[in-house]
Design a protein around this nucleic acid. Structure first.
Lengths: 342, 342
DNA sequence: TGTCGCTGCTAATCCGCATTACCACGGGCA
DNA sequence: TGCCCGTGGTAATGCGGATTAGCAGCGACA
């Protein structure tokens, strides 16, 4: 009798209890009824009964050793998932992922064992356990190209949530289509009469930043000002904008937009009468501000959901297109109007 | 020569290239220099050189196969984790769990494959995958006793987050110590002069509800009124309280407290001058209200963290006490003061 | 000269599972 | 009677490592 308390139940244990061989247990479990392996209902039921009674589950590691699927979906995040700072960012993605995983009967494996160095995780380290899962989803604003390249080189099945540039090959992703969304809101502002417009935010670093700036340039032209926001207060940014007589500013990160609005309120600058503010994406923390910003909505939940679907397609070999951009939905809001004197 | 393009490099490949045995490669990799295995520097260097040149990395799965544990920590929630309705409830627990798992080098497996029927998951179903994980944490306001009983009977290693009544045996848990915390806030109100006090909320169903009511009764006596809140508006509750000339009410769920406060504001009932309101635990959604409720804080994050620690102890056989209650920290707030005329 | 002990390795085995090869038995058929 | 084939299984093997047991060779020493 196996020592249940300390030892994991194995197929050998099941075999002994059902008075068959380990082979038979495996065949029953995998529902094999080929010509080469026929198991009569009586034997099958006996084995299944023992399995049910003991609650046996195959060791996922051993299964993966022999290249089987585990119904385990890996989720790799570049920061901790739950701490509230980043938690609200990941939350909508994960909600979509969970929904789809639930539908497919998969469990979610969060790679929390990946050591965090300098505030970020790394996929590849001493003892990376990616292969426990059948495949993996990658989450994070920025993902190092070398890690992506290695995943591709090793032919590990994964899907990135968010568009990524090629890394030694095309990266499978489900992203948000920032460029056209940005272009459209810019054009909308232009249609209202805005001529002096600016982009505020990094505009580089992550693909999502670059995409927004690209969309901005498509509509606003190469010479429209691009103002950085790093290490800069909302007041500073506001000063620059007023100096340059900007009438509409497109802010990449909502937190910057909120800071800008606060500064405007403090200085008596009226938004949108004096300055229109357009947010190029949602808040990472919804309740932070009451102001209903004009801009667009990033379909985070849908991205997570579709990413799981894509990974499923990749795993089952039915994937045709491995790069998918979802449209961003425009949000009306109250922070965009015609500039003064128009 | 192995087909590098498609096949992963193995120790056997390294062995062949370095003209040694697979054993030697393994010994070199694990830096073994026991009496039983001596590798001269020359051989060691030769092997290391090949490893460096080929970029060989040991398969983590195969490594763990040989060991006993999988370093997979199961997390079972009775509702979906991420949808925002329940998400904010689970969030602090999960933050603590993640932190501790990270420290221990464990991955987190969320059992999303468990089918949701009638809004709740069940552990035991046709194909429960609990045993994929080394052990499991259980989260949820209420956990069916039959499921707990079965886990205990099967000697599956688990820890409940939140106190649970015995279920065919003592349930390992890390809970919050509601009873004394409730007793203390009641006594504090009594010290301020409150004589007509009431308990509002279910007071039964989940252990956490029963514990609060028990603490309330310890200080307030058996005859103090207990008002239900289910299917009842804040106004209704307020009416009952005023009818019974209650001066201080202890509300089990913060949402009820918030509803009550809203009703009070609408009716011109002043809190705390006319009625003191004490919340027996935190909000599940922090930003819902601006009012700083008097009451106590449930150490959710610490509970998650300690639960992982306890599970680790259970798994390694070093657990002595398997039931742990963490103290709740009192919060001052602004909704408790002396009753009028005292 | 035999043997003891040390060095420097390797063969064999195991981890838990899936898969392949093969075997014993009985009935049908020439 | 001998052969073939279908049935119902099992033994053996491999996945990629870690570990244990053991072996060949050689010098020292009695």
């Amino acid at each position: 009798m196996p020592d249940k308390a300390t030892t994991r139940l194995t197929q050998r244990d099941i075999a002994r209890l059902a008075k068959v061989s380990q082979t038979t247990v495996s065949l029953v479990l995998n529902n094999r009824s080929d010509a080469s392996a026929r198991i009569p209902a009586e034997t099958r039921d006996r084995v299944l009964k023992v399995i049910r009674e003991t609650g046996y589950q195959a060791d996922p590691l051993a299964r993966r050793m022999v290249q089987q699927r585990n119904q385990i979906l890996g989720v790799f995040t570049y920061e901790s998932v739950f701490p509230s700072s980043s938690g609200d960012f990941y939350h909508p993605f994960l909600a979509g992922i969970e929904e789809c995983a639930e539908r497919l009967g998969w469990d979610l494996l969060l790679f929390t064992s990946a050591p965090v160095t300098a505030g970020r995780r790394r996929i590849f380290h001493e003892n990376n356990r990616l292969r426990i899962a059948d495949g993996c989803l990658l989450l994070g604003r920025h993902i190092p190209g070398d890690e992506l390249a290695r995943l591709i080189a090793e032919e590990y099945p994964f899907v990135s949530v968010g568009r990524r540039d090629d890394a030694g090959g095309p990266v499978p992703y489900v992203g948000a289509d920032y460029a056209p969304a940005t272009r459209i809101v810019v054009e909308r502002a232009q249609a209202l009469g805005h001529r002096r417009i600016a982009f505020a935010g990094p505009g580089a670093g992550a693909e999502s930043s670059a995409d927004r700036l690209r969309g901005f340039r498509q509509a606003a032209g190469a010479r429209a000002p691009h103002l950085p926001t790093v290490d800069r207060s909302g007041g500073d940014l506001l000063d620059s904008l007023l100096d340059q007589k900007v009438t509409a500013v497109f802010v990449e990160e909502r937190t910057d937009a909120v800071a800008l609005l606060a500064a405007a309120t403090a200085r008596g600058v009226d938004v949108p009468a004096d300055l229109s503010v357009i947010a190029l994406g949602d808040s990472t923390r919804p309740a932070e501000s009451d102001i209903d910003l004009t801009g667009f909505h990033v379909p985070r939940r849908a991205m997570g959901l579709r990413a799981v679907e894509l990974l499923e397609a990749v795993l089952s070999g039915t994937a045709t297109e491995r790069q998918l951009l979802l449209p961003c939905e425009l949000t009306d809001g109250t922070t965009l109007t015609s500039p003064k004197g128009v």
